[in-house]
Design a protein around this nucleic acid. Structure first.
Length: 429
RNA sequence: GGAGAGGUGGCCGAGUGGUUUAAGGCGCACGCUUGGAAAGCGUGUGUACUCGAAAGGGUACCGCGGGUUCGAAUCCCGCCUUCUCCGCCA
Protein backbone atom coordinates (compact mmCIF):
# COMPACT_ATOMS: atom_id res chain seq x y z
CA UNK A 1 0.00 0.00 0.00
CA UNK A 2 2.58 2.45 -1.21
CA UNK A 3 0.43 5.47 -0.59
CA UNK A 4 1.37 7.21 2.60
CA UNK A 5 3.57 4.75 4.46
CA UNK A 6 1.03 3.14 6.72
CA UNK A 7 2.90 2.93 10.00
CA UNK A 8 3.96 6.55 9.75
CA UNK A 9 0.48 7.57 8.76
CA UNK A 10 -1.08 5.64 11.60
CA UNK A 11 1.27 7.16 14.16
CA UNK A 12 0.65 10.72 13.00
CA UNK A 13 -2.95 10.68 11.86
CA UNK A 14 -4.05 13.64 13.95
CA UNK A 15 -1.19 15.91 12.87
CA UNK A 16 -1.62 14.92 9.24
CA UNK A 17 -5.33 15.66 9.38
CA UNK A 18 -4.60 19.11 10.82
CA UNK A 19 -2.13 19.86 8.05
CA UNK A 20 -4.53 18.64 5.39
CA UNK A 21 -7.15 20.97 6.76
CA UNK A 22 -4.97 23.95 5.77
CA UNK A 23 -5.49 23.03 2.16
CA UNK A 24 -9.20 22.60 2.55
CA UNK A 25 -9.17 18.82 2.72
CA UNK A 26 -11.36 17.43 5.46
CA UNK A 27 -9.97 14.11 6.56
CA UNK A 28 -12.28 12.09 8.76
CA UNK A 29 -9.91 10.62 11.34
CA UNK A 30 -12.60 8.68 13.20
CA UNK A 31 -13.87 7.02 10.06
CA UNK A 32 -10.33 6.14 9.11
CA UNK A 33 -9.62 4.57 12.48
CA UNK A 34 -12.70 2.42 12.26
CA UNK A 35 -11.77 1.28 8.78
CA UNK A 36 -8.17 0.66 9.80
CA UNK A 37 -9.23 -1.56 12.68
CA UNK A 38 -11.73 -3.37 10.51
CA UNK A 39 -9.15 -3.99 7.83
CA UNK A 40 -6.55 -5.30 10.24
CA UNK A 41 -9.00 -7.66 11.84
CA UNK A 42 -10.03 -9.07 8.47
CA UNK A 43 -6.44 -9.47 7.28
CA UNK A 44 -5.34 -11.15 10.49
CA UNK A 45 -8.22 -13.61 10.53
CA UNK A 46 -7.70 -14.61 6.91
CA UNK A 47 -3.98 -15.02 7.36
CA UNK A 48 -4.35 -17.20 10.42
CA UNK A 49 -6.70 -19.51 8.59
CA UNK A 50 -4.33 -19.69 5.64
CA UNK A 51 -1.47 -20.61 7.92
CA UNK A 52 -3.57 -23.46 9.26
CA UNK A 53 -4.46 -24.64 5.79
CA UNK A 54 -0.86 -24.56 4.66
CA UNK A 55 0.21 -26.65 7.62
CA UNK A 56 -2.52 -29.22 7.12
CA UNK A 57 -1.93 -29.45 3.40
CA UNK A 58 1.65 -30.28 4.11
CA UNK A 59 0.50 -32.95 6.53
CA UNK A 60 -1.67 -34.48 3.83
CA UNK A 61 1.34 -34.66 1.58
CA UNK A 62 3.32 -36.50 4.23
CA UNK A 63 0.45 -38.86 5.08
CA UNK A 64 -0.06 -39.72 1.43
CA UNK A 65 3.58 -40.50 1.05
CA UNK A 66 3.29 -42.82 4.03
CA UNK A 67 0.31 -44.50 2.36
CA UNK A 68 -2.30 -43.37 4.87
CA UNK A 69 -5.91 -42.52 4.01
CA UNK A 70 -6.45 -38.75 3.92
CA UNK A 71 -10.07 -38.48 2.81
CA UNK A 72 -11.31 -37.14 6.13
CA UNK A 73 -8.59 -34.53 6.50
CA UNK A 74 -9.04 -33.41 2.92
CA UNK A 75 -12.74 -32.80 3.48
CA UNK A 76 -11.90 -30.80 6.56
CA UNK A 77 -9.36 -28.64 4.75
CA UNK A 78 -11.73 -28.21 1.85
CA UNK A 79 -14.33 -26.73 4.20
CA UNK A 80 -11.63 -24.44 5.51
CA UNK A 81 -11.00 -23.32 1.95
CA UNK A 82 -14.59 -22.19 1.56
CA UNK A 83 -14.26 -20.09 4.68
CA UNK A 84 -11.02 -18.61 3.38
CA UNK A 85 -12.67 -17.65 0.10
CA UNK A 86 -15.31 -15.86 2.10
CA UNK A 87 -12.76 -14.07 4.27
CA UNK A 88 -10.65 -13.13 1.27
CA UNK A 89 -13.63 -11.46 -0.33
CA UNK A 90 -14.13 -9.47 2.85
CA UNK A 91 -10.47 -8.48 2.97
CA UNK A 92 -10.56 -7.35 -0.66
CA UNK A 93 -13.66 -5.26 0.00
CA UNK A 94 -12.36 -3.59 3.16
CA UNK A 95 -8.93 -3.14 1.65
CA UNK A 96 -10.41 -1.45 -1.37
CA UNK A 97 -12.41 1.01 0.70
CA UNK A 98 -9.31 1.67 2.76
CA UNK A 99 -7.19 2.28 -0.33
CA UNK A 100 -9.81 4.55 -1.85
CA UNK A 101 -9.71 6.62 1.29
CA UNK A 102 -5.91 6.83 1.31
CA UNK A 103 -5.36 7.50 -2.39
CA UNK A 104 -7.80 10.39 -2.23
CA UNK A 105 -5.60 12.22 0.28
CA UNK A 106 -3.57 15.07 -1.23
CA UNK A 107 0.04 15.79 -0.37
CA UNK A 108 0.93 17.71 2.78
CA UNK A 109 2.00 21.33 2.24
CA UNK A 110 5.61 22.20 3.05
CA UNK A 111 6.07 24.45 6.09
CA UNK A 112 7.12 27.39 3.89
CA UNK A 113 3.77 27.40 2.10
CA UNK A 114 1.43 30.22 3.18
CA UNK A 115 -1.93 29.14 4.52
CA UNK A 116 -4.82 30.36 2.42
CA UNK A 117 -8.07 29.46 0.79
CA UNK A 118 -7.71 30.58 -2.82
CA UNK A 119 -5.46 32.22 -5.39
CA UNK A 120 -6.09 35.52 -3.60
CA UNK A 121 -3.88 34.28 -0.78
CA UNK A 122 -0.90 33.42 -2.99
CA UNK A 123 2.28 35.32 -2.20
CA UNK A 124 4.12 37.32 -4.83
CA UNK A 125 7.81 36.44 -4.45
CA UNK A 126 9.26 38.72 -7.08
CA UNK A 127 8.57 40.71 -10.21
CA UNK A 128 11.05 40.84 -13.08
CA UNK A 129 10.96 43.21 -16.05
CA UNK A 130 8.70 46.18 -16.63
CA UNK A 131 5.58 45.91 -18.77
CA UNK A 132 6.13 47.93 -21.91
CA UNK A 133 4.15 51.14 -22.44
CA UNK A 134 2.50 51.30 -25.83
CA UNK A 135 1.88 54.44 -27.88
CA UNK A 136 -1.00 52.59 -29.49
CA UNK A 137 -3.73 50.27 -28.22
CA UNK A 138 -2.12 46.79 -27.91
CA UNK A 139 -4.20 43.98 -29.37
CA UNK A 140 -4.91 40.59 -27.92
CA UNK A 141 -3.28 37.69 -29.75
CA UNK A 142 -6.61 36.34 -30.96
CA UNK A 143 -7.04 39.47 -33.03
CA UNK A 144 -3.40 40.02 -33.87
CA UNK A 145 -2.67 36.42 -34.84
CA UNK A 146 -5.76 36.11 -36.98
CA UNK A 147 -5.04 39.46 -38.68
CA UNK A 148 -1.51 38.30 -39.44
CA UNK A 149 -2.86 35.11 -41.00
CA UNK A 150 -0.76 32.94 -38.68
CA UNK A 151 -3.53 31.73 -36.39
CA UNK A 152 -6.89 30.24 -37.37
CA UNK A 153 -9.65 29.15 -35.02
CA UNK A 154 -12.44 28.68 -37.53
CA UNK A 155 -10.69 26.09 -39.62
CA UNK A 156 -9.53 24.35 -36.42
CA UNK A 157 -13.16 24.14 -35.31
CA UNK A 158 -14.05 22.71 -38.69
CA UNK A 159 -11.47 19.92 -38.68
CA UNK A 160 -11.67 19.19 -34.95
CA UNK A 161 -13.71 21.43 -32.67
CA UNK A 162 -13.74 24.19 -30.11
CA UNK A 163 -10.59 24.90 -28.08
CA UNK A 164 -8.27 23.91 -30.91
CA UNK A 165 -6.13 26.14 -33.12
CA UNK A 166 -4.25 25.93 -36.40
CA UNK A 167 -1.00 27.83 -36.94
CA UNK A 168 0.17 28.90 -40.38
CA UNK A 169 3.46 30.14 -41.80
CA UNK A 170 5.52 32.15 -39.31
CA UNK A 171 2.98 31.25 -36.62
CA UNK A 172 3.73 27.57 -37.02
CA UNK A 173 7.39 28.33 -37.22
CA UNK A 174 7.26 30.42 -34.05
CA UNK A 175 5.83 27.43 -32.19
CA UNK A 176 8.67 25.25 -33.51
CA UNK A 177 11.26 27.95 -32.80
CA UNK A 178 10.17 28.25 -29.18
CA UNK A 179 10.31 24.52 -28.67
CA UNK A 180 13.83 24.33 -30.07
CA UNK A 181 15.00 27.40 -28.20
CA UNK A 182 13.73 26.09 -24.85
CA UNK A 183 15.15 22.60 -25.36
CA UNK A 184 18.49 24.05 -26.46
CA UNK A 185 18.80 26.29 -23.41
CA UNK A 186 17.84 23.57 -20.94
CA UNK A 187 20.08 20.91 -22.45
CA UNK A 188 23.08 23.15 -23.20
CA UNK A 189 23.05 25.58 -20.30
CA UNK A 190 20.99 24.00 -17.52
CA UNK A 191 22.20 20.40 -17.62
CA UNK A 192 19.00 18.58 -18.55
CA UNK A 193 18.87 15.46 -20.69
CA UNK A 194 16.31 15.56 -23.46
CA UNK A 195 13.62 12.85 -23.43
CA UNK A 196 11.06 12.21 -26.13
CA UNK A 197 8.36 9.95 -24.66
CA UNK A 198 5.07 8.56 -25.96
CA UNK A 199 2.18 11.03 -25.73
CA UNK A 200 -0.16 8.21 -24.70
CA UNK A 201 0.18 6.68 -21.24
CA UNK A 202 -1.51 3.90 -19.28
CA UNK A 203 -3.53 4.06 -16.05
CA UNK A 204 -0.65 2.93 -13.86
CA UNK A 205 1.41 5.92 -14.98
CA UNK A 206 -1.45 8.31 -14.29
CA UNK A 207 -1.85 6.82 -10.84
CA UNK A 208 1.85 7.30 -10.18
CA UNK A 209 1.77 11.04 -10.78
CA UNK A 210 -1.52 11.45 -8.90
CA UNK A 211 -3.86 12.16 -11.84
CA UNK A 212 -5.80 8.96 -11.21
CA UNK A 213 -8.00 7.83 -9.65
CA UNK A 214 -9.36 11.25 -8.74
CA UNK A 215 -8.96 13.34 -11.85
CA UNK A 216 -9.84 11.07 -14.75
CA UNK A 217 -12.46 13.57 -15.88
CA UNK A 218 -9.71 16.03 -16.83
CA UNK A 219 -8.23 13.57 -19.30
CA UNK A 220 -8.98 12.18 -22.73
CA UNK A 221 -9.15 8.41 -22.90
CA UNK A 222 -8.69 6.26 -25.98
CA UNK A 223 -11.66 3.98 -26.54
CA UNK A 224 -11.32 0.22 -26.00
CA UNK A 225 -7.90 0.49 -24.44
CA UNK A 226 -6.04 1.49 -21.31
CA UNK A 227 -4.40 4.38 -23.15
CA UNK A 228 -4.93 8.01 -22.20
CA UNK A 229 -3.64 11.18 -23.85
CA UNK A 230 -1.00 12.54 -21.51
CA UNK A 231 -2.03 15.87 -19.93
CA UNK A 232 1.65 16.79 -19.45
CA UNK A 233 5.07 15.24 -20.05
CA UNK A 234 5.31 14.98 -16.28
CA UNK A 235 3.30 11.76 -16.53
CA UNK A 236 5.41 9.73 -18.98
CA UNK A 237 8.74 11.18 -17.84
CA UNK A 238 8.19 10.70 -14.09
CA UNK A 239 6.98 7.17 -14.71
CA UNK A 240 10.09 6.30 -16.70
CA UNK A 241 11.59 5.31 -13.35
CA UNK A 242 8.49 3.72 -11.88
CA UNK A 243 9.24 0.64 -9.76
CA UNK A 244 12.97 1.26 -9.99
CA UNK A 245 15.52 1.64 -7.22
CA UNK A 246 18.15 4.24 -8.05
CA UNK A 247 21.71 4.42 -6.79
CA UNK A 248 22.33 7.64 -4.83
CA UNK A 249 25.23 8.60 -7.09
CA UNK A 250 22.84 8.63 -10.08
CA UNK A 251 21.00 11.54 -8.51
CA UNK A 252 19.96 14.15 -9.23
CA UNK A 253 18.52 13.17 -12.60
CA UNK A 254 17.39 16.09 -14.77
CA UNK A 255 15.11 15.46 -17.74
CA UNK A 256 13.51 17.91 -20.13
CA UNK A 257 10.87 16.92 -22.60
CA UNK A 258 8.83 18.46 -25.38
CA UNK A 259 5.36 17.02 -25.84
CA UNK A 260 1.90 17.90 -26.88
CA UNK A 261 -0.42 17.91 -23.88
CA UNK A 262 -4.09 17.03 -23.93
CA UNK A 263 -6.71 18.12 -21.43
CA UNK A 264 -10.44 17.77 -21.49
CA UNK A 265 -10.87 21.03 -19.57
CA UNK A 266 -13.96 19.61 -17.96
CA UNK A 267 -15.44 22.23 -15.69
CA UNK A 268 -13.55 25.15 -17.21
CA UNK A 269 -16.38 26.17 -19.51
CA UNK A 270 -16.46 29.89 -19.93
CA UNK A 271 -12.88 30.42 -18.73
CA UNK A 272 -10.33 31.69 -21.22
CA UNK A 273 -12.64 30.92 -24.09
CA UNK A 274 -10.88 33.32 -26.46
CA UNK A 275 -7.52 32.68 -28.03
CA UNK A 276 -5.09 29.89 -27.29
CA UNK A 277 -4.68 30.35 -23.55
CA UNK A 278 -6.70 27.27 -22.71
CA UNK A 279 -6.74 24.60 -25.41
CA UNK A 280 -7.50 20.89 -25.50
CA UNK A 281 -4.09 20.40 -27.09
CA UNK A 282 -1.06 22.52 -26.35
CA UNK A 283 2.67 22.07 -26.48
CA UNK A 284 4.94 22.28 -23.50
CA UNK A 285 8.59 21.83 -22.61
CA UNK A 286 8.64 20.16 -19.22
CA UNK A 287 11.46 19.92 -16.68
CA UNK A 288 11.50 16.85 -14.41
CA UNK A 289 13.95 16.06 -11.64
CA UNK A 290 14.54 13.04 -9.42
CA UNK A 291 16.45 13.86 -6.26
CA UNK A 292 17.11 12.72 -2.72
CA UNK A 293 15.09 14.13 0.15
CA UNK A 294 18.08 16.22 1.24
CA UNK A 295 18.40 18.22 -1.96
CA UNK A 296 14.88 18.47 -3.29
CA UNK A 297 14.14 21.99 -2.09
CA UNK A 298 17.41 23.35 -3.50
CA UNK A 299 16.69 21.58 -6.76
CA UNK A 300 13.18 22.98 -6.76
CA UNK A 301 14.55 26.51 -6.49
CA UNK A 302 17.01 25.84 -9.30
CA UNK A 303 14.38 24.33 -11.53
CA UNK A 304 12.19 27.38 -11.06
CA UNK A 305 15.12 29.62 -11.98
CA UNK A 306 15.76 27.51 -15.08
CA UNK A 307 12.20 28.22 -16.20
CA UNK A 308 12.57 31.91 -15.35
CA UNK A 309 15.74 32.05 -17.43
CA UNK A 310 13.69 31.35 -20.56
CA UNK A 311 11.39 34.29 -19.80
CA UNK A 312 14.37 36.54 -19.15
CA UNK A 313 16.18 35.57 -22.35
CA UNK A 314 12.98 36.28 -24.27
CA UNK A 315 12.68 39.65 -22.51
CA UNK A 316 9.22 38.91 -21.17
CA UNK A 317 8.09 40.61 -17.92
CA UNK A 318 6.90 38.13 -15.32
CA UNK A 319 6.32 37.55 -11.65
CA UNK A 320 6.82 34.56 -9.41
CA UNK A 321 3.98 33.51 -7.12
CA UNK A 322 4.15 31.10 -4.22
CA UNK A 323 0.87 29.22 -4.14
CA UNK A 324 -0.95 29.05 -0.82
CA UNK A 325 -2.16 25.81 0.76
CA UNK A 326 -5.64 26.17 -0.76
CA UNK A 327 -4.49 26.75 -4.35
CA UNK A 328 -1.94 23.96 -4.76
CA UNK A 329 -2.35 20.89 -6.93
CA UNK A 330 -3.28 17.55 -5.40
CA UNK A 331 0.21 16.00 -5.49
CA UNK A 332 2.31 19.03 -4.65
CA UNK A 333 4.02 19.99 -1.39
CA UNK A 334 5.11 23.38 -2.68
CA UNK A 335 4.42 25.18 -5.93
CA UNK A 336 5.71 28.33 -7.60
CA UNK A 337 3.72 29.70 -10.51
CA UNK A 338 5.43 31.93 -13.04
CA UNK A 339 3.09 34.46 -14.57
CA UNK A 340 3.94 36.33 -17.75
CA UNK A 341 2.67 39.80 -18.58
CA UNK A 342 0.13 39.85 -21.42
CA UNK A 343 -0.46 43.43 -22.64
CA UNK A 344 -3.42 42.45 -24.81
CA UNK A 345 -5.23 41.43 -21.65
CA UNK A 346 -3.37 43.70 -19.24
CA UNK A 347 -2.76 40.89 -16.81
CA UNK A 348 -0.18 38.41 -15.56
CA UNK A 349 -1.04 34.90 -16.77
CA UNK A 350 0.33 31.57 -15.60
CA UNK A 351 2.97 30.25 -17.98
CA UNK A 352 4.76 27.77 -15.73
CA UNK A 353 4.04 25.85 -12.57
CA UNK A 354 7.02 24.43 -10.67
CA UNK A 355 6.31 21.93 -7.91
CA UNK A 356 8.14 19.82 -5.42
CA UNK A 357 6.17 16.64 -4.80
CA UNK A 358 8.60 15.36 -2.20
CA UNK A 359 7.96 11.59 -1.92
CA UNK A 360 4.27 11.75 -2.83
CA UNK A 361 4.61 10.63 -6.43
CA UNK A 362 7.57 8.37 -5.65
CA UNK A 363 5.47 6.46 -3.12
CA UNK A 364 2.67 5.98 -5.60
CA UNK A 365 5.07 5.08 -8.41
CA UNK A 366 7.56 3.03 -6.38
CA UNK A 367 10.62 5.17 -7.17
CA UNK A 368 13.32 4.48 -4.58
CA UNK A 369 16.87 5.42 -3.75
CA UNK A 370 19.23 2.88 -2.26
CA UNK A 371 20.42 4.11 1.11
CA UNK A 372 22.55 1.17 2.18
CA UNK A 373 22.68 -2.58 2.46
CA UNK A 374 19.24 -3.66 1.39
CA UNK A 375 17.80 -0.37 2.55
CA UNK A 376 16.05 2.18 0.41
CA UNK A 377 13.87 5.24 0.75
CA UNK A 378 11.58 7.04 -1.65
CA UNK A 379 13.06 9.56 -4.05
CA UNK A 380 11.74 13.07 -4.36
CA UNK A 381 10.31 14.31 -7.66
CA UNK A 382 10.10 17.86 -8.91
CA UNK A 383 8.79 19.27 -12.12
CA UNK A 384 7.80 22.46 -13.83
CA UNK A 385 6.99 23.90 -17.22
CA UNK A 386 9.95 25.39 -18.94
CA UNK A 387 7.74 26.75 -20.49
CA UNK A 388 4.24 26.27 -21.84
CA UNK A 389 4.95 26.89 -25.52
CA UNK A 390 1.48 28.07 -26.54
CA UNK A 391 1.30 30.71 -23.85
CA UNK A 392 4.86 31.80 -24.66
CA UNK A 393 3.72 32.21 -28.25
CA UNK A 394 0.95 34.46 -26.98
CA UNK A 395 3.38 36.45 -24.83
CA UNK A 396 5.79 37.01 -27.72
CA UNK A 397 3.08 38.13 -30.10
CA UNK A 398 1.40 40.45 -27.61
CA UNK A 399 4.53 41.94 -26.03
CA UNK A 400 6.44 42.45 -29.26
CA UNK A 401 3.59 43.74 -31.42
CA UNK A 402 4.16 46.93 -33.38
CA UNK A 403 1.84 49.73 -34.43
CA UNK A 404 1.55 48.36 -37.99
CA UNK A 405 0.30 44.99 -36.73
CA UNK A 406 3.59 43.15 -37.25
CA UNK A 407 5.56 41.43 -34.48
CA UNK A 408 9.25 42.05 -33.78
CA UNK A 409 11.19 38.84 -33.17
CA UNK A 410 13.33 38.82 -29.98
CA UNK A 411 17.03 38.52 -30.78
CA UNK A 412 17.43 35.02 -29.30
CA UNK A 413 14.67 33.67 -31.56
CA UNK A 414 15.85 35.28 -34.80
CA UNK A 415 18.20 32.42 -35.73
CA UNK A 416 15.33 29.96 -35.24
CA UNK A 417 12.82 31.96 -37.25
CA UNK A 418 15.29 33.28 -39.80
CA UNK A 419 13.46 36.58 -39.53
CA UNK A 420 13.52 39.81 -37.54
CA UNK A 421 9.85 40.49 -37.87
CA UNK A 422 6.65 38.53 -38.41
CA UNK A 423 4.50 40.15 -41.06
CA UNK A 424 1.13 39.42 -42.58
CA UNK A 425 0.86 36.15 -44.42
CA UNK A 426 -1.36 36.30 -47.48
CA UNK A 427 -1.64 32.65 -48.34
CA UNK A 428 -5.22 32.13 -47.25
CA UNK A 429 -8.16 34.57 -47.38
C1' G B 1 -2.69 -8.85 -37.91
C1' G B 2 -0.58 -14.36 -38.20
C1' A B 3 3.05 -18.22 -36.37
C1' G B 4 6.72 -19.74 -32.88
C1' A B 5 9.85 -19.18 -28.40
C1' G B 6 10.52 -16.81 -23.77
C1' G B 7 9.25 -13.78 -18.88
C1' U B 8 11.85 -17.31 -11.81
C1' G B 9 15.20 -13.26 -6.21
C1' G B 10 20.44 -7.55 -7.23
C1' C B 11 22.34 -10.76 -11.61
C1' C B 12 22.90 -15.76 -14.01
C1' G B 13 20.27 -20.10 -13.72
C1' A B 14 17.64 -25.04 -11.95
C1' G B 15 12.87 -26.36 -11.08
C1' U B 16 6.15 -30.10 -14.91
C1' G B 17 1.54 -30.95 -8.29
C1' G B 18 3.61 -32.09 -1.78
C1' U B 19 11.06 -31.81 2.93
C1' U B 20 11.37 -25.91 -2.57
C1' U B 21 10.71 -22.66 4.33
C1' A B 22 12.67 -21.34 -4.52
C1' A B 23 18.57 -25.90 -5.72
C1' G B 24 23.26 -24.09 -7.41
C1' G B 25 26.37 -20.11 -8.88
C1' C B 26 27.77 -14.87 -9.13
C1' G B 27 27.60 -10.39 -6.61
C1' C B 28 27.17 -7.98 -1.92
C1' A B 29 27.67 -7.64 3.72
C1' C B 30 29.81 -9.43 8.15
C1' G B 31 33.17 -12.79 10.64
C1' C B 32 37.45 -16.22 10.77
C1' U B 33 42.22 -16.53 8.57
C1' U B 34 46.50 -12.79 7.10
C1' G B 35 51.75 -8.17 8.39
C1' G B 36 48.00 -6.36 4.68
C1' A B 37 45.24 -8.23 0.64
C1' A B 38 43.64 -12.24 -2.49
C1' A B 39 42.29 -17.15 -2.09
C1' G B 40 39.91 -20.27 1.38
C1' C B 41 36.25 -21.20 5.21
C1' G B 42 31.75 -19.75 7.85
C1' U B 43 27.30 -16.82 8.38
C1' G B 44 23.87 -13.69 6.25
C1' U B 45 21.55 -11.50 2.01
C1' G B 46 14.02 -9.13 -1.22
C1' U B 47 9.33 -6.37 -0.85
C1' A B 48 4.60 -5.38 1.31
C1' C B 49 1.15 -6.43 4.93
C1' U B 50 0.13 -8.55 9.65
C1' C B 51 0.59 -10.67 15.06
C1' G B 52 3.87 -9.52 19.19
C1' A B 53 6.38 -5.24 24.66
C1' A B 54 10.42 -7.81 22.58
C1' A B 55 12.64 -12.10 20.93
C1' G B 56 10.32 -14.11 17.21
C1' G B 57 6.13 -15.69 14.22
C1' G B 58 2.43 -15.56 10.09
C1' U B 59 0.39 -14.25 5.09
C1' A B 60 1.14 -12.80 0.06
C1' C B 61 4.40 -12.16 -4.11
C1' C B 62 8.24 -16.96 -9.52
C1' G B 63 5.18 -11.08 -15.88
C1' C B 64 -0.40 -9.67 -14.53
C1' G B 65 -5.46 -11.50 -13.53
C1' G B 66 -8.74 -15.58 -13.00
C1' G B 67 -9.57 -21.07 -12.46
C1' U B 68 -8.70 -26.43 -11.00
C1' U B 69 -6.83 -28.85 -6.28
C1' C B 70 -6.48 -30.66 0.48
C1' G B 71 -2.01 -28.32 -1.74
C1' A B 72 0.23 -24.47 -7.77
C1' A B 73 6.54 -21.42 -9.82
C1' U B 74 4.71 -26.20 -11.78
C1' C B 75 -1.87 -27.88 -14.64
C1' C B 76 -6.07 -24.84 -17.35
C1' C B 77 -8.10 -19.95 -19.33
C1' G B 78 -7.50 -14.66 -20.45
C1' C B 79 -4.20 -10.59 -20.79
C1' C B 80 0.57 -7.85 -20.85
C1' U B 81 5.44 -7.86 -22.51
C1' U B 82 10.32 -9.40 -24.98
C1' C B 83 12.66 -11.94 -29.06
C1' U B 84 12.44 -14.46 -34.07
C1' C B 85 9.85 -15.13 -38.71
C1' C B 86 5.70 -13.67 -42.05
C1' G B 87 2.19 -9.85 -43.54
C1' C B 88 1.21 -4.60 -43.56
C1' C B 89 3.11 0.13 -43.01
C1' A B 90 5.73 5.91 -41.97
Amino acid sequence: MRVHELSHFRANVEAIADRLATRGFAFDVEQWKVLDTERRAAVTEAEQLKAQRNAQSMEIGKLKKAGADTTAVQAEVRAMGDRITELDAKVVAVDERFRDLLTAIPNLPHESVPTGASADDNAEIKRVGTPRTFDFEPKAHWDLGVDLGILDFERAAKITGARFAVYFGQGARLERALMNFMLDVHTRDHGYTEVFPPFLVNSASLFGTGNLPKFGADLFKIENSDYWLAPTAEVPVTNLLRDETLEPEQLPIHFCSYTSCFRSEAGSHGRDVRGIIRQHQFQKVELVKFTTAETSYDEHEKLTQDAEDILERLGLPYRRMLLCTGDMGFSSAKTYDLEVWLPGQATYKEISSCSNFEAFQARRAGIRVRTGKGKSEYAHTINGSGLAVGRTWVAIVENYQQADGSVAVPAVLQPYLQAEVITKSGILR
